[in-house]
Simulated assay, not measured.
Amino acid sequence: MALLTLAEAKAQLNITSTSNDTELQVYVDAVGPVIERFIGPVAERIVVETQDVARDGVQVLVLRTTPVVSLTSVEPLLASGGTSYDVGALVLDGDTGIVRRADGGWLRGPLKVTYTAGRGEVPATVNLAARMLVQHLWQTQNASRGPVLPGGGDYSVSEPVAGLGYAVPNRVLELLEPYRLLPGVA
């Protein structure tokens, strides 16, 4: 599952030739980490992390990479023993990454947690945001290759002071807003 394909980017830019495919693919590849910085992983990936839970235990674990699709395993970090937890007996809030025991009991650690983070599919709004971000970056870098919107708008490359541009236009941020990561706790 790709956040954005080369064909989708070319459609957004109204490009029909293949002469810029190699360069444009760099832009397509670059928008993924930018989008994921705001909304978390899109493509599903396996994450293994250590939860430094004290042996006294906690009632919830907070996974670091959200959204979470599924839990694979929750097992003791130390080979010398500890408790493994049946993931079927755990409750996962995929949006927040909060894991707790269904029976209300305590989780004791330290623990190694393996899970799948990402999204089952790319929401249409997120795909559109990626298309618009590629368009913005392509037009600011390659203004001579295509039309620039009247008045410059988000795509102006003739800024009064060099270097005061921005990589992610507000319209892209607004499209991503419903999928934004929750604020973290330091």
Rank of each mutant, 00 (worst) to 15 (best):
R171I: 06
G184T: 00
P76Q: 06
L92M: 05
S70F: 04
L92I: 03
E121V: 15
A143L: 02
L107D: 10
L133P: 00
M132A: 10
E159M: 10
L175G: 01
Y166I: 01
L173S: 08
A117G: 02
L137P: 07
Q139I: 10
V134M: 02
W138H: 05
L111R: 05
S158W: 07
G165M: 01
Y85R: 05
P76H: 02
Q135M: 13
A129Y: 05
G105L: 13
S144Q: 15
L149M: 13
G88T: 09
P123Q: 03
L182Q: 09
L90N: 14
V172L: 05
L133S: 00
G81A: 02
L173I: 05
W106G: 06
T83C: 04
A167V: 14
V157M: 07
P169H: 05
G81S: 01
T116Q: 15
L128D: 12
G184M: 02
V122K: 11
D86M: 08
T140L: 01
Q135T: 14
G94N: 02
V161N: 07
T140I: 06
A117S: 08
L149K: 12
G153E: 12
A162K: 06
G81T: 02
T72S: 13
G163D: 00
G120W: 11
V69T: 08
A124N: 04
A79K: 10
L107N: 09
Q139H: 10
T114E: 14
V91Q: 02
P123K: 06
T116C: 10
M132Y: 08
A117W: 01
L181Y: 08
L175S: 01
E174G: 09
P147C: 04
L149A: 15
L90M: 07
T114W: 10
V91S: 03
A130K: 11
T83G: 03
R108P: 03
G153Q: 13
L149R: 14
D93K: 09
R180H: 14
E159C: 05
Y85N: 07
V69W: 07
Y115D: 07
D154G: 00
V68Q: 01
T114A: 14
L182T: 07
L173F: 07
Y85G: 14
L137N: 03
A79F: 11
V161H: 06
K112N: 13
D154I: 00
D154E: 07
V126Q: 11
R101E: 05
R100T: 04
V126H: 11
L181R: 11
V126G: 10
T140R: 11
T116V: 15
P178T: 09
A79R: 13
G152I: 04
L77Y: 04
P110A: 12
L90I: 04
P110N: 13
A79Q: 06
R131G: 12
L71V: 10
K112R: 15
G94E: 05
L182M: 08
A143N: 03
A102G: 08
L111I: 10
G82Q: 10
G153A: 09
V113S: 12
A143C: 04
D86I: 05
G120P: 12
E177S: 14
G151P: 03
A162I: 11
E177L: 15
N127D: 04
P150W: 13
D154A: 01
N142G: 15
T83N: 04
L175C: 00
